[in-house]
Structures are given as structure tokens and as C-alpha cells.
């Protein structure tokens, strides 16, 4: 018992410290912006930036994409923006054509790393500076992203705490091939090492694209039938928040609201779910995709202006959204209607 209290205390302290750290980072980011505004203005005048994204069907993808396109325009450049509609071979074809268009830089957003890597190498071979959004690869001069180690850890700690450090959980792990999802999943495993009483139910669930919500709904409904007694499942974890929506709906439909759901991204509909006191959606780590896209383009502009000291990674702060802070975070993220 004392141990549990100690642990709780430890996590409360830790959450508090992280909150302070986050506040400092957010504040710091704002201060940075102020500096940027005062320093010689960034410009992409006369520059062409190729933007290739795997898809824009998800809130995060679309906002990050818009952030890039808008920022290129704002800085006076031309954007050649192509959306592969979640099709790997289409993205490869678009990258091939982009290379032949010889833009001043190319920004690549998400997608399957093993598919992309040889083609990203071809971008480098063609002498075009390569930047990425949310794609961690040594081939990129700069990857602008959220700190997914922090995201994965925060979400896992919250989950472990919420369920009192024991019980069965379900995990959607269909996109381990996407580096950011792999990081979040590995962080979950890392945290669970120290919670031996939490068990991931095997086989893990596989989230899919498209039809993510319907598919997650069906899968969860099936598992609930297999584990009918209350308490046999404590929580559902997903590396992003679209499966979380399907899972949450399935829990409501089955009347199993004692199970909590966890996800990442912070799409407006999910933040609303978290805010709803009756919804089993317990937490989501909200990212700032529009800011991420914007920051990636600013890095390109700095690089093309001759500043080759652009860091390997630029992290845009993410926020853990829970029932307690959802309303407030909505305002911070500009999602409040």
C-alpha cells in the first residue's frame, strides 16, 4: 500500500514537473517566434518547395499539410504540393516527378519508411535539400515533429495510473512501420516494464486505413464478446486517435464504459469526446500539426538563406488532454467553437 502511495506521489510529482517543463517550452516557443519576427524576415521569394504527403484524410495530416502550403505562400515562395491519397506507389511516382522538377527543396510528410527510403536517397542524390515532417530518417536535414518519446511516455504513464497499475489492456499496433507510431508503442512497452501487473492482450489489434473507425469498432466489439465480464479489460491504447474514436463508440454501444481509451493527435472531435464526462475516452495527447507544418517550412527558408545550422530535429510541444483540462486545451489549440 505504501508502495502504491509512493508511486502515486512520484507520478503526481513527475506530471507536475512535466507540466512546468511544458509550460516553459510553450513559453519558449512563443519567445522564439518573437525573436523570428524581429530578426531579418524569412523569405522564400523566387523559391520553389516540393511538398509530398502520403495522405490528408486524417485531421493531423491535413493540418500539417495546410501549415506547409500556407507558410510557403506567406513567405512568397511557390509550393508544388502533392497528396498521394494514402497510396505508397502513387507517392513514389509523385516523388520521381518532383525530383525531375528540380525544386529548391523537398519536404516529405509521413508514409512508410521502408518504402520511402530508397526514393528519399534519390532526392539527396539529385542534390535537392530534403526536409521531413514526422518522418525520422538520417536522410533528412531536419525533421519537424512532436517529441514522440514524450508523447508515448505521457500517454502510457497516464494509462497506467488511471487503471491503478494492473489489468488487461488492448493495443492497436497496425502501423509499427511508421516511425512515430513505433516510438509511441515502444515507450508504452518501456513504461509497462515497470508495471508487471498490466498485461497486453495478445494478439494485438491491427488498425487499418481506410475505414479506421468502423474497423476499430468491429474489432473492439468482437473482443468485448470474448471478454464479457466487467473488469476483464481495463483500457484500450492506440498510437493515434482515429482508432480511439471507433473503440470509444464500441464501448458506448456495448455499455462497457468502465473501459478507458487512450490515443494521440488531438483531433477536435476526440478532444470533445475527452471533455464529455460520460465518454470512456480518457486521454489523448494533442499535437499542433499546423504549427509543425509551418515550422518545417521556416526551417527550409532558414536553410535556403544560408543558415546550415538547422537542427536535426525540431520539436513542437504536445499537450496531454484529460477530462480535467480538455476545455482549457481546446482554447489553447484554437479548437474552441
Amino acid at each position: 500500500m505504501t508502495k502504491l502511495i509512493e508511486r502515486r506521489y512520484y507520478y503526481e510529482m513527475r506530471t507536475l514537473m512535466l507540466a512546468v517543463a511544458l509550460a516553459i517550452t510553450v513559453g519558449g516557443a512563443r519567445a522564439d517566434d518573437a525573436v523570428t519576427a524581429r530578426s531579418p524576415a524569412l523569405s522564400l521569394l523566387g523559391k520553389t518547395v516540393g511538398i509530398t504527403v502520403i495522405g490528408t484524410d486524417h485531421y493531423w495530416d491535413l493540418r500539417a499539410y495546410q501549415g506547409q502550403v500556407d507558410e510557403v505562400r506567406r513567405l512568397g515562395g511557390t509550393a508544388i504540393a502533392v497528396d498521394a491519397g494514402r497510396n505508397d506507389s502513387r507517392q513514389i511516382a509523385q516523388i520521381q516527378t518532383l525530383i525531375s522538377q528540380k525544386p529548391d527543396a523537398i519536404i516529405e510528410q509521413l508514409g512508410t519508411l521502408s518504402v520511402l527510403e530508397p526514393w528519399l536517397q534519390k532526392i539527396r542524390d539529385a542534390g535537392i535539400p530534403l526536409f521531413t515532417v514526422d518522418t525520422a530518417t538520417p536522410l533528412s536535414l531536419n525533421d519537424t515533429t512532436s517529441d514522440n518519446f514524450f508523447i508515448g511516455e505521457q500517454l502510457a504513464l497516464r494509462l497506467a495510473n488511471d487503471i491503478g497499475g494492473e489489468g488487461n489492456i488492448l493495443v492497436f499496433n497496425g502501423f509499427y512501420g511508421v516511425p512515430v507510431c513505433a516510438i509511441r508503442y515502444d515507450e508504452l512497452k518501456e513504461v509497462l516494464k515497470f508495471y508487471p501487473k498490466i498485461r497486453i492482450i495478445e494478439p494485438e489489434l491491427r488498425d487499418v486505413i481506410p475505414n479506421t473507425v468502423q474497423n476499430a469498432y468491429t474489432q473492439i466489439t468482437e473482443v468485448l464478446n470474448k471478454y464479457p465480464e466487467k473488469g476483464s479489460i481495463k483500457a484500450i491504447w492506440a498510437a493515434w486517435d482515429v482508432p480511439q474514436v471507433g473503440a470509444t463508440q464500441a464501448l458506448l454501444a456495448a455499455g462497457r464504459t468502465e473501459i478507458k481509451t487512450y490515443g494521440v493527435d488531438g483531433s477536435p472531435d476526440v478532444v470533445n469526446l475527452i471533455k464529455d464526462p460520460d465518454s470512456p475516452a480518457a486521454a489523448v495527447v494533442a499535437q499542433q500539426p499546423y504549427e509543425i507544418g509551418k515550422a518545417a517550412v521556416d526551417n527550409v527558408a532558414r536553410y535556403l538563406a544560408g543558415d546550415h545550422g538547422v537542427p536535426l530535429y525540431s520539436y513542437i510541444p504536445a499537450i496531454l488532454v484529460t477530462k480535467q483540462n480538455a476545455a482549457e486545451v481546446q482554447k489553447t489549440l484554437g479548437q474552441a467553437s
Binding site: R86, N87, D88, S89, I92, T112, S114, V115, E117, P118, V208, I209
Partner: peptide, 15 residues
């Protein structure tokens, strides 16, 4: 051919 282009197999060929 597709395996060569994509370094393996990925879902979504049905499209």
C-alpha cells in the same frame, strides 16, 4: 514489379 518499386509489399493495392 510492385515489390521492386515499394521494397516489399504494402496494403492498398486494391485501389
Amino acid at each position: 514489379f510492385s515489390a521492386a518499386l515499394l521494397n516489399g509489399s504494402t496494403p492498398g493495392s486494391g485501389e
